[in-house]
Amino acid sequence: MLVNQFLILAAILFAIGVYGVVARRNAVLVLMSIELILNAVNLNLVAFAMRNGSADGHTFALYVIAVAAAEVGVGLGLVLLIFRNRRTIALDELSEMKG
């Protein structure tokens, strides 16, 4: 197996995730796209761990999984709050940051 086959798969997933973050309007779907990106990163970490024969990659993959779980928890909490206040989770209607 090539190193690159895993890395390029991860790159494709990452790019799809980027597309999702940019194109999606529904906040839950944006969070899902972020999960795709995080998974792509994890795949890289594990692939490099195998290439280098060291456990560091595994360790950080575990950390990333834990952080992702926390991120989803807080992210969905935010989405819920927004939904409760404005009855919508469409991101383009949230433009308080407009300059």
Partner: peptide, 17 residues
């Protein structure tokens, strides 16, 4: 540069990436 500061998250994301 005001048009860039639309306040829309996805636009910021697109620009960032």
């Amino acid at each position: 540069v005001q048009p860039v500061q639309s306040g829309k998250v996805s636009q910021y994301g697109a620009l960032l990436f």
